[in-house]
Computed example of a mutant assay.
Amino acid sequence: LPLLIAGDVLAVLTYRRHAHWPTLWRLFPAVAAGVVVGTLFLMRADDGIVRTSIGVILLLMAALTVWRRRTAEQAAEPDAVTTRAGRVKARSYGVLGGFTTMVANAGGPVMSMYLLSAGFRKLGFLGTSAFFFLIVNVSKVPFSVGLGLIDGPSLLLDAALVLFVLPGALLGKWAVDRINQRLFEQLVIAATVLGALQLLLR
């Protein structure tokens, strides 16, 4: 989690001007509910159940996103969250995003699928998701400490690894500047599917 927060800070510094705050404000209450549910789930579930649950959720989200993209004549604009259907979708994805990010730090794929389905372009996608995960991940710290997921030894490991976050961020910025919107979306979906399969096949 501390490594993710370090990456979030770099992403916010890079894409902060492109965030869509109306979308963020509508997501946060649902995400908070999902984080609480995820915390309760972690207190009872073993690792196998956690991996299977998250893997299935990610595969379903990816399949739903691909299906919607193929059946829709055109993607909705980001301000579509102001409609009733848009609000319901935002809340549903928000709860799932909060749950998956608390249970396995895997909320990124869920929220990526939501932002793609809402019609966000590349920079809007990155700016909105950067702020979203910085705020959500920081809010998860007390829960993770309480569950024993963050302690002295883990922080020492994070301190040793954080130096590698910066080269990764620079590589990501370089790549984003050189790929078009269609390839960007395909890579996001492919990464979600691969992450889900990794969880299910471990």
Rank of each mutant, 00 (worst) to 15 (best):
P2F: 15
L3K: 10
A6N: 08
A11R: 08
A11M: 11
V12N: 08
L13H: 13
T14E: 15
R16F: 14
R17A: 15
H18G: 02
W21H: 03
P22T: 10
R26A: 14
P29V: 09
P29L: 12
A33C: 15
V36H: 01
V37I: 15
R44N: 10
I49F: 11
M61Y: 07
L64C: 06
T65F: 10
T65M: 13
T71S: 13
A72D: 14
D79H: 14
V81F: 11
T83F: 12
R84H: 12
R87K: 11
R91C: 14
Y93F: 15
G94W: 11
G94C: 09
V95Y: 00
V95S: 05
G98A: 08
F99Q: 02
F99S: 03
V103D: 02
P109A: 06
L115T: 00
G119K: 11
G119V: 11
F120N: 08
R121L: 12
G124F: 09
F131H: 05
F132C: 02
L134I: 03
V138H: 00
V138R: 00
S139E: 04
P142G: 03
L147R: 01
L149H: 00
D151Y: 07
P153F: 12
P153K: 04
S154N: 06
S154V: 12
D158W: 05
A160K: 02
V162F: 06
V165W: 06
L166K: 03
G168P: 05
G168F: 07
L171M: 11
L171I: 13
L171T: 09
K173V: 13
D177M: 07
N180A: 09
L183A: 12
L183M: 11
L183Y: 10
E185I: 05
E185V: 10
L187D: 00
V188S: 01
A191D: 06
L194A: 13
Q198I: 02
Q198T: 08
R202K: 10
